[in-house]
Design a protein around this nucleic acid. Sequence first.
DNA 1: ACGTCCTACGCAACTAGTTGCATAGCATCG
DNA 2: CGATGCTATGCAACTAGTTGCGTAGGACGT
Lengths: 179, 179
Amino acid sequence: MALEHAILVSLAEKTASGYDLARRFDASIGHFWKASHQQIYKVLGRMESDKWVESHLVAQDNRPDKKVYSITGEGRDELMRWSSVPTPIEPLRSEFAVKLRGTQFGDRDAVLADVRVRRAAHEAQIAYYEASAQRHYPDPASLREDELGAYLVLRGGILAEQTGMTWCDEILQAFEAER
Amino acid sequence: MALEHAILVSLAEKTASGYDLARRFDASIGHFWKASHQQIYKVLGRMESDKWVESHLVAQDNRPDKKVYSITGEGRDELMRWSSVPTPIEPLRSEFAVKLRGTQFGDRDAVLADVRVRRAAHEAQIAYYEASAQRHYPDPASLREDELGAYLVLRGGILAEQTGMTWCDEILQAFEAER
DNA sequence: ACGTCCTACGCAACTAGTTGCATAGCATCG
DNA sequence: CGATGCTATGCAACTAGTTGCGTAGGACGT
């Protein structure tokens, strides 16, 4: 269950409400672990019972009250414990790969159109990540200790997207050669 | 729901029992879409009610009977329909990325040990895929039409694993430079 | 005045997938 | 002769995550 730990990491960086977390998950951390607000609220409730986080209500002007969560000592202990357990290697899981494998039983042109769409999506995502890297870490040679993790994760995203694009190109080439 | 379609693709290639499918999912298709035998049996039941597949019992010597499934016309129609719908782009999902991001709140050396283990796993997987490619597709320049999809999927696996290894190297380098 | 969007929280019902177990015969190894 | 492991199917209970809906107030445009 990485969602709990993703939330702990996020709260260790900065306290937040469920709503704030949902927005963070739409942005930085969420590029590598998606979560809907419903899921976040549900898990936050469980984490509060487990004493990993605690909350207090904050009244706001012209806005609904919010419940701001912060990580507890036990939460930090759990983060430490979790970091020392090897992460299970998550197998690849790609519906697109299944489709590609079954192209001969389907609509070949539709699959190729799909590849082109995916290639464009990878390209856009690379541009987005590159811009983000440029903005937050203009000098990767000298990163603060607390920036290193986030930077390396961003690098992982860039590498993965570039690979996705390369794969798309290889697929298009192979199908064109075949025709 | 790609499991249904992965099963349809597999059955379109060759009829199989649930048990056979489970073993195929441990081998070829399963490298890109894992499924337990329980999940496969469950889904096969649903697919039979939906008339996408049909089964008949086959008695065997010295072995339990088996229920051999084959794809129906409706199943092939569904495969065709599915192939023409764009595949939703599946977001990255990596517990390891979450951990890397939170390294400052955890046990740095344990995380680095984890990276080394993962690097070795990627290396082994590449060797396995390369051997598989060599054995099944020794001449990629001249593939039969029905081999192309499976070959390209294998290529995708190799590319992804290589990227995983590259990422591990980058992480190790960055942490060594920092120390 | 009305519609739409944003902040903010949450429940209920569902689907997908995991974990643990049960059954049952035959093979193989020590 | 007993343990282990393979073939073969499946149920039950659980967890994680999705989809759809509800509430409630304020902002902002037309």
